[in-house]
């Protein structure tokens, strides 16, 4: 992650989840009894290596046409794939469809997996692509009304409306409610703006990776992200009791 992005995220904590493959009991012969990875565990790298070895063994067997081996891969990775789809789509039925589609596609393309990245990373890329495609296909706020969410200025360059701070968040209950407000606001953005938030916040891609993924310049990626933040700020301002 570039320095600028790191600075941008100062104060934001990310929860690093257990990999479901490591958190669940593995039924495949020879790799039973994985230890669960915990934050700060020095054996995490070893465990990760074992998980990768287990994936490699299953992939090799699945490539020979063994359905049981691929089923084990599905059981190991489907929870994380499903969770990724659900974050992007925020709809259980769509997420289940995309999870299925992603794992079927992974099976079809298994020969093209070269092991340069982790299998879980490869799967995450597949499910993200499919979920974003589905997101784009859904009707969202048209671009014309999106412009209304951007700040406006007088001819002399000053704000047309005064800008107030957000209300203080009083307690945990209010924090939870505020999270719902934010999710609803994100869902109101046009798909390409939701997409860039997902790539940056969920996929944790840096600017260059985001630009490469979207096949746009880094400047265009920065501008789109900035506009997404501006529009989201306007939507939140309306919800959180300050300037609409």
């Amino acid at each position: 992650m570039p320095r600028s992005a790191r600075r941008f995220l100062v104060g934001v904590s990310f929860f690093v989840p257990l990999h479901p493959a490591e958190a669940s009991t593995d039924e495949y012969p020879g790799i039973r009894g994985f230890s669960v990875r915990r934050a700060g565990d020095k054996s995490a790298l070893v465990t990760e290596g074992l998980a990768a070895d287990a994936d490699a063994a299953l992939i090799a067997e699945a490539r020979t046409g063994c359905p049981r081996a691929f089923e084990q891969l599905v059981r190991r990775h489907a929870p994380r794939v499903h969770r990724q789809a659900l974050w992007i789509l925020r709809n259980e039925a769509d997420a289940a469809d995309v999870t299925q589609e992603a794992l079927v596609k992974a099976h079809q393309k298994l020969d093209s997996f070269r092991g340069e990245a982790k299998f879980s990373t490869w799967l995450q890329r597949i499910v993200t692509n499919l979920a974003l495609m589905k997101l784009r296909s859904q009707r969202r706020r048209p671009e014309a009304s999106f412009e209304e969410l951007l700040p406006t200025f007088h001819e002399d360059g000053h704000h047309t409306r005064s800008v107030s701070p957000f209300k203080e968040c009083a307690d945990l209950e209010e924090q939870v409610a505020r999270r719902d407000v934010v999710c609803r606001a994100i869902a109101q953005l046009p798909a390409n703006y939701q997409e860039i938030l997902v790539l940056r916040c969920v996929q944790e891609l840096d600017t260059q990776e985001t630009a490469d993924f979207l096949k746009i310049s880094t400047n265009a990626a920065k501008l789109r992200l900035h506009r997404a933040h501006q529009a989201l700020r306007t939507l939140l301002a309306a919800e959180l009791g300050v300037d609409p």
Partner: peptide, 15 residues
């Protein structure tokens, strides 16, 4: 936005 989109630990162990 980061908090809303960040992963949580509600990952089912089984599919």
């Amino acid at each position: 936005e980061q908090k809303a989109l960040a992963p949580d630990d509600a990952v089912p162990a089984d599919v």
